[in-house]
C-alpha cells in the first residue's frame, strides 16, 4: 500500500517538475551563459595599499594551494585575504604544515603551488622537487626578529646581553641556575626561563643563531609553551625571568616586558625594532621568512598574479608589520624579489 502511494507521489512530482520547466519558459527567463555565474558575495573594506597590475582587466579564476611554515602562515593569509577581495574568482587554500613537512609532503610532490618556509630550502628538498620536475623560486617575504625579553624591573643586565651570555644561559652544557653563574656581578637569584616548545620554528632558529647546531643543544629545564602569550606573562610575573619569542608578540606587549639589546657582529648592543631589523643592524637574531612558488605553477596567470601581488605588498607596513607583526622588506629587496619573480614567470611561459 505504501509503495503504491509512493509511486503515485513520485510520478506526480515528476509531472510537476517537468511542467514547471515549461511554465518557467513563460515566466522570468534569462539568457543562459552556461554555468550560472553569480557575482561574488564579497564586499566590505578595501584591501591594502595595492596597485596590483592584474586586477580589473580580466576576471581571474582558479585555485591556489599554499602549504608550509606556520610562522609565515598568518602573513600568507593576510595577503590572500586582500587578494581574494579583489579577485573573488580565485580560490586560495592555505594550510599550516611546517616548512619541512610542506616541502616533503605537499610542494615537491606537486600538490601545492606555494610553500612557505621560515628557513631556506635544503639541498635534499631541492633534489626531491627536481625529481618531480618542480622548480622552487625563492622569494623573501619578510624578516622576523627574535626578541629576548626580561622583566621590567630587571636593571642589572645593563647595556644588554652578548651572544656568548645568551649561549651560556640557554645551552644544555652549562645550564646555570642563578644569574650570578652567568656573570658574578649579577644577583644570586634563580633564573626562570621561558621559551617556545621544540616543535616551533622560533626554537629552531634560536638554536641555529645562538646555541649552534653542533653544540650541546638547548637546555630542557625551561618552561616551554606553545603560546607566546604565556611567555610574556611568565616574564612579566617574575623579576628574574628571561625568555624569547617572535617580535610580533613583543611589539604588542612593549609595556609589559622589556626587550634585551643583543650585541651584534659589530659589537654594538642593538634593541630589536622594525628599523634595526630592516637595516640589518639587529643581528644575529633576525631571520628571513620565505615563500617558494613553483615555477611551473607560475605559468598560470592567477598564480603569477597572486605572487606579484604578494611581492608588491611586501613593503606594506600596514599588512606586514601592523597586522602580522613581521618586518616588511625594504624597497631594494622588494625590487630584487620582483625581478626574480618576473624572470621566473617569463621562463615559465
Amino acid at each position: 500500500m505504501t509503495s503504491n502511494t509512493d509511486d503515485v507521489l513520485s510520478r506526480r512530482k515528476f509531472l510537476i517538475a517537468s511542467s514547471a520547466v515549461g511554465v518557467a519558459g513563460l515566466a522570468g527567463c534569462t539568457e543562459n551563459n552556461s554555468g550560472g555565474s553569480e557575482g561574488g558575495d564579497s564586499g566590505g573594506s578595501e584591501g591594502g595599499d595595492s596597485d596590483s597590475s592584474g586586477d580589473g582587466s580580466e576576471e581571474l579564476s582558479g585555485a591556489i594551494d599554499i602549504a608550509g611554515s606556520s610562522t609565515v602562515f598568518p602573513l600568507a593569509t593576510a595577503m590572500a585575504e586582500r587578494f581574494q577581495k579583489e579577485n573573488s574568482g580565485v580560490n586560495i587554500n592555505i594550510q599550516s604544515t611546517g616548512s619541512g613537512g610542506g616541502f616533503a609532503n605537499y610542494f615537491c610532490p606537486g600538490d601545492t603551488d606555494f610553500n612557505n618556509a621560515s628557513r631556506p630550502i635544503k639541498g635534499e628538498e631541492e633534489d626531491q622537487c627536481a625529481n618531480n620536475d618542480i622548480t622552487p623560486v625563492e622569494l623573501k617575504v619578510a624578516t622576523d626578529a627574535l626578541t629576548v625579553i626580561v622583566n621590567n624591573d630587571n636593571d642589572f643586565i645593563g647595556e644588554g646581553l652578548t651572544v656568548e651570555q645568551l649561549q651560556t644561559i640557554f645551552s644544555a652544557e652549562e645550564a646555570p641556575t642563578t644569574w650570578s653563574d652567568v656573570n658574578s656581578e649579577w644577583p644570586d637569584e634563580e633564573i626562570e626561563i621561558f621559551g617556545p616548545t621544540d616543535a616551533s620554528g622560533t626554537y629552531d632558529y634560536f638554536i641555529e643563531a645562538i646555541i649552534g647546531e653542533e653544540g650541546p643543544g638547548h637546555r630542557q629545564d625551561y618552561s616551554a609553551t606553545e603560546q607566546d602569550r604565556t611567555i610574556v606573562q611568565g616574564v612579566e610575573g617574575s623579576e628574574y625571568a628571561i625568555g624569547y619569542l617572535g617580535f610580533a608578540y613583543y611589539s604588542e606587549n612593549t609595556d609589559s616586558v622589556q626587550a634585551v639589546p643583543v650585541e651584534n657582529d659589530e659589537g654594538n648592543y642593538v634593541e630589536p625594532s622594525l628599523d634595526t631589523a630592516l637595516s640589518g643592524e639587529y643581528n644575529p637574531l633576525s631571520r628571513p621568512l620565505f615563500t617558494y612558488p613553483a615555477q611551473e605553477s607560475l605559468a598560470e596567470e592567477h598564480v603569477a598574479t597572486f605572487a606579484r601581488y604578494w611581492m608588491e605588498n611586501s613593503t606594506s607596513k600596514e599588512i606586514v608589520a601592523d597586522e602580522v607583526g613581521y618586518v616588511p622588506l625594504g624597497d631594494d629587496e622588494q625590487q630584487e624579489m620582483l625581478d626574480k619573480l618576473n624572470a621566473a614567470i617569463e621562463e615559465a611561459n
Binding site: V21, V23, A24, A27, E31, N32
Partner: peptide
C-alpha cells in the same frame, strides 16, 4: 538550453513545487 528561467524561478517552481 539557450534561454532558461532565472535562478529563483527554478527554485520556486522545482523546490517549492515539490
Amino acid at each position: 538550453i539557450p534561454v532558461v528561467p532565472t535562478e529563483w524561478v527554478i527554485i520556486t517552481l522545482v523546490f517549492g513545487g515539490v
